[in-house]
Design a protein around this nucleic acid. Structure first.
Length: 439
DNA sequence: CGTCCACGTCTAC
DNA sequence: TAGACCTGGACGG
């Protein structure tokens, strides 16, 4: 899910779902997650989101509750707090009822409603991260979608950077220059221009620079003449780094409003990535690049073709509890019926390079030495949280049946600001250590 | 069952 | 330039 467009759609989603809602209490983190606590606690606050490239910032703003609540200022966070998110491979936001809290909801924001609802950051693989009081990550370039001019400038004025010594398909994943581009977008973008993925990046981009000047010339001279015929100029690589992601944003905007199956919509949109009939190779970082035709000169030795059907994790109907269920999947799944079947990858591979067996890359990622799933199993049964109201949750978890465990695990203590709404207890600075938690 | 694969960073030898 | 970090779906035996 998460490349630039998805991050932006996530911010739209948050803004739409949270509009007019008031949140309250502390921000809760699941115990298994190793990201830092978010030390924010407030009787009433609102949430706004924005995105830039492959990051999202949630701004938590205390809400004027005038009248009462004036006194419990002491430790309350009175200033807005920004929390930056990076989504890793599987992060996204979801808004549900408290009872439907999804497994892997690792950071949670609660509304002040009767049956509470929850905005959660869900992240199955936990490669995602967040940082309280964070800012856009230094070293990430301008957003390819919403800071187009500076994005262009940043690339074209730094072509001497060794980052551009690499094949174009690898340079495109460098977030210092292409903030928002990910593995499927690089494939789709290169495919549109039929640029071989393993051509040196600088070579491709220098061409653009020149071409750009040409364009200006052309425009200048022909503008007065026939504005019509001239427009046909093919877009360059950098402009596609802008427009292609925006196409996906558009898909999503239409897609999930009516809780559509944004799942197959994206698949149907793909022209190259994971598409049957396309070629694929692993790049120097072990990532699969999909392309058509000539791979170009800088192919890694022993690169292997891959095949895989992109099976997105369910369809995030995002919105709310159950609603879109599945029903829709069928209707749309039909569109591109058996689109991906068997792939006939790079023929040359099979015969020759296979034999040379130098595949050092073989695998990545998989190191697993049957390390116990250190996840949920921290059987810290004790619990110790007699705090009166422990909403009936786990029991009602009917997700699928098998995974009921990993789910909920809160970590209440973190920010000492619990029952604020109820009693305004001047908090107990118990045992010195971390009691204070001001801010 | 086990292996391979996945929309991304990070750090460490 | 390898791993490490994770869970889980697809597919093979």
């Amino acid at each position: 899910m998460p490349e630039g467009p998805e991050l932006h759609l996530a911010s739209l989603f948050v803004n739409r779902m949270c509009e007019g809602l008031v949140f309250t209490g502390a921000v809760e983190k699941s115990e298994v997650n190793k990201n830092p606590e978010v030390p924010f606690c407030c009787d009433a606050y609102i949430i706004k989101a924005q995105s830039r490239g492959k990051e999202v910032i949630l701004t938590l703003t205390p809400f004027k509750n005038d009248g009462d609540s004036k006194r419990k200022v002491g430790k309350q966070t009175q200033h807005p707090m920004d929390v930056v998110f990076r989504f890793g491979m599987s992060g996204f936001f979801r808004f549900t009822s408290e009872d439907d809290l999804p497994k892997h909801a690792h950071l949670r924001f609660y509304t002040n409603e009767r049956p509470r609802r929850v905005l959660s950051f869900e992240d199955t693989r936990r490669f995602g991260s967040w940082q309280a009081n964070g800012t856009w990550q230094k070293d990430r370039g301008p957003c390819v979608m919403f800071e187009y001019e500076s994005f262009r400038e940043n690339v074209l004025s730094n072509l001497s950077d060794k980052a551009f010594d690499k094949p174009i398909c690898e340079a495109l994943l460098n977030q210092k220059y292409f903030n928002g581009i990910g593995n499927y977008l690089r494939a789709e973008i290169l495919f549109r221009l039929q640029i071989p993925p393993f051509v040196k990046a600088r070579t491709v981009l220098e061409g653009i620079e020149l071409k750009n000047e040409d364009k200006k010339e052309i425009k200048k001279t022909t503008d007065t003449a026939g504005k019509k015929g001239v427009k046909v100029e093919t877009p360059d690589l950098l402009s596609l780094c802008h427009t292609v992601p925006l196409e996906v944003v558009k898909l999503g905007e239409n897609g999930y409003k009516p809780a559509k199956a944004e799942y197959s919509v994206l698949q149907a949109w793909m022209q190259c990535y994971c598409v049957d009939g396309m070629n694929s190779l692993s790049d120097h970082n072990g990532r699969t690049i999909w392309f058509k035709g000539d791979p170009g000169p800088m192919v890694p030795k022993g690169a292997k073709s891959r095949k895989h059907k992109w099976k997105i994790q369910k369809d995030h109907d995002y919105t709310d509890s159950k609603k879109a269920k599945k029903t829709h999947t069928e209707s749309i799944a039909i569109e591109k019926p058996a689109k991906k079947k068997d792939n006939i990858k790079v023929k040359k591979e099979s015969a020759t390079s296979k034999a040379q067996g130098g595949s050092k890359k073989q695998k990545k990622d998989t190191k697993r030495v049957s390390k116990e799933p250190a996840d949920e199993n921290t059987k810290s049964k004790k619990q110790g949280k007699r705090s009166s109201k422990v909403p009936p949750r786990t029991g009602t978890n009917k997700i699928k049946g098998q995974h009921v465990e990993e789910v909920i695990k809160t970590k209440r203590n973190s920010v000492t600001c619990k029952e604020s709404a109820t009693k305004a207890k001047p908090q107990r600075r118990s045992s010195g250590t971390r009691g204070g938690r001001s801010r």
